[in-house]
Design a protein around this nucleic acid. Structure first.
Ligand SMILES: [Mn+2]
Ligand SMILES: [Mn+2]
Ligand SMILES: [Zn+2]
Ligand SMILES: [Zn+2]
Lengths: 144, 144
DNA sequence: CTAAATATTGATAATGAGTATCAATATTAT
DNA sequence: ATAATATTGATACTCATTATCAATATTTAG
């Protein structure tokens, strides 16, 4: 699931930025990119620990910040108060449908909505930067 | 800015729910409904203190929760990690354009977007409950 | 290949928002 | 008025995240 090309891109980024390579950084990068999506920092911590016990909490947070800054990963501030992370290497921008019963995330993009959002920015004299749209409801499985 | 009718609605709500009237509750209600919008709990705390020194932090949080449950007020989980509150007595649902330079909030509703959101729920087998849409950009003033 | 320069790490203390606890006090019903 | 009950403020606590710092690892220069 994680290609050599992606690993190299990460190493190149570190070099470009004058940062040093470390095994913990690579393990976190691998976990975030190859693993499940929409994980909290704590879930990522537990995942990385399986492969690399002894890793510190602080390193998880530091590296997640690094990955977000580098654009390999995006942060999603959730309603439960925690942040969830998902790889942004392959996946481009998308929004989320979230089940309020089971927490399921469904990724969606509606080009019409995206266009109307730009129009809203324009109408109100804003220079568009980014947006966040979350649709909360009950998924099919949870209604049975 | 705060009418007798609104005050009475609050008192009626308390009675209906078997809750008791208190001066601190009324002061907080007045501040949230009459004051600025999109304030954090701490900002509301400081505002209420001007009129009612000695009020406790816990009472602010408790009453904000009460006001949200009652539908007088809505909570907006912001990117800076804090919640912001705004009265919902007059104002119905709306979304926000937020300036990333100055923090200005502009309230918007786009009926077309709202319709497309419902369609997205349907397409994905979700029972719609609510949504949140925030558009981040740079406002006209901040681009000068 | 060393050794110096520099960045990273993990442990842990600190922060900040929000919640839980509890005895003192206020409101309401009788 | 009195008893029953809810609310309050102080404060301890939780939870996610950030800051600090000495020990360690990586990189660079010689
Ligand atoms: Mn996603
Ligand atoms: Mn608003
Ligand atoms: Zn579900
Ligand atoms: Zn602005």
């Amino acid at each position: 699931m994680l290609t050599e090309k992606e690993k190299r891109a990460f190493q190149d980024y570190l070099t470009q930025e004058g940062l040093k390579f470390s095994l913990q950084r690579m393990k976190i990068f691998e976990t975030v990119l190859a693993g499940l999506k929409h994980l909290t920092a704590n879930e990522i911590y537990k995942n990385v620990q399986k492969k690399y016990p002894g890793i510190g909490y602080a390193t998880i947070y530091r590296t997640l910040r690094l990955l977000c800054d580098a654009g390999f990963c995006t942060e999603l501030k959730c309603e439960d108060g925690a942040c969830r992370y998902e790889q942004a290497f392959v996946n481009a921008h998308h929004d989320h449908l979230i089940c309020t019963k089971c927490g399921r995330f469904v990724e969606v993009v509606d080009p019409q909505i995206e266009r109307l959002q730009i129009r809203l920015f324009k109408i109100n004299g804003f220079l568009p930067q980014r947006h966040r749209m979350e649709l909360y409801g009950v998924c099919k499985q949870c209604r049975k």
